[in-house]
């Protein structure tokens, strides 16, 4: 088919560039001015001398005994924060998804329980929750379980595994408490997001599943939840990023995560700016990576839609 009378197809016109306007110039000038003022204050007025080598020293150090490089406090803190992030994400999902489903339940009892949970958590500050959980769980329940004692007697390989997966066995109870706080707190928001996601799936999808003979549970698992979660990926990503930032609260129960360690290093070195600027950068790097990961998930989900 070589019909020359038809309008020949041609490539699209080049994409129009956004122009640089005077507003952009003004904004850039404002940013440069603010930076310049900050540099002037630190250099000339406060006579602040930057010393980034302390940060490097607290990141990795040479073990004097073996001569090998090994992670120092700040890097350990970063790892602790990453572990909190990963397990927090898993636990918050395990709590949040069933609670979100229960919010839409036909039965009264699950609706009541999940509604109460979300209402309580949403209306108390995370800090207060940390203290409450620390008191009840850490002081009343955990010691009775004897997890730490059991771990202390456990073989070396188990202790090492625990250290890699969760953190130092000595503070395992603090870590459990910290994780619980994060998961309970984040789970409530995840539940609300999941509920909204479920409500965003049209009823006709349930009917299609019913007409094929699927059970209510199968419809939930295979039809509703995959679509619901896909629809709420952006707010879910936000919530998990928020959780990573909230994980600094766990320093209050003596989990040596990034913020906890930063305070120690800052006291030891008296280098407030360098330490906290650097720690801020680390949090940024972690959160930004997670948001990229979610952006890719979203792109994949869109490709399927």
């Amino acid at each position: 088919m070589n019909d020359t009378s038809a309008a020949p197809s041609r490539p699209p016109p080049p994409a129009r560039r956004r122009r640089w306007t005077w507003i952009d110039t003004a904004l850039l000038a404002a940013v440069l001015a603010a930076l310049g003022w900050f540099a002037y204050r630190t250099e000339a007025v406060m006579f602040y001398r930057w010393n980034w080598s302390v940060v490097a020293n607290y990141l990795i150090k040479v073990d004097p005994a073996t001569g090998h490089w090994q992670p120092n406090a700040l890097l350990d803190g970063l790892f602790a924060t990453l572990r909190l992030a990963v397990w927090g994400l898993v636990l918050a999902t395990l709590i949040g998804v069933p609670m979100g489903v229960a919010r839409n339940s036909r039965r009264l009892f699950p609706r009541l329980v999940s509604g109460l949970y979300v209402m309580v958590i949403r209306n108390i500050p995370p800090l207060v929750l940390v203290f409450v959980v620390a008191f009840f769980v850490a002081n009343q329940i955990l010691p009775g379980l004897g997890i730490r004692a059991a771990l202390a007697r456990a073989p070396d390989w188990l202790q090492t595994t625990c250290a890699v997966l969760f953190g130092p066995p000595k503070i395992i109870e603090n870590i459990i408490v910290g994780l619980l706080c994060l998961a309970i707190f984040t789970g409530a928001y995840v539940a609300e997001i999941v509920r909204a996601g479920i409500e965003s799936v049209p009823r006709s999808q349930i009917e299609a599943g019913e007409s094929l003979g699927l059970t209510r549970f199968q419809i939930l698992r295979d039809v509703i939840l995959p679509q619901a979660l896909r629809n709420v990926l952006p707010p879910l990503a936000n919530q998990f990023i928020q959780m990573i930032k909230d994980s600094s609260l766990v320093s209050l129960v003596s989990v040596q995560e990034l913020t906890f360690v930063a305070q120690d290093v800052q006291i030891a070195t008296q280098r407030v700016f360098e330490v906290f600027l650097f720690v801020g950068f680390l949090y940024f790097a972690v959160c930004w990576s997670l948001s990229r990961l979610f952006a890719r998930l979203e792109a994949r989900a869109r490709a399927a839609g």
Binding site: Q205, E207, A208, L212, L214, T215, P226, Q227, G305
Partner: peptide, 22 residues
Amino acid sequence: QFNLFPHLTVLENCVLAQRRAR
């Protein structure tokens, strides 16, 4: 309105209930 499952391919749409319900 067809009510296909938008998150599944055409083949998966046809396979899901056979596997689960049968």
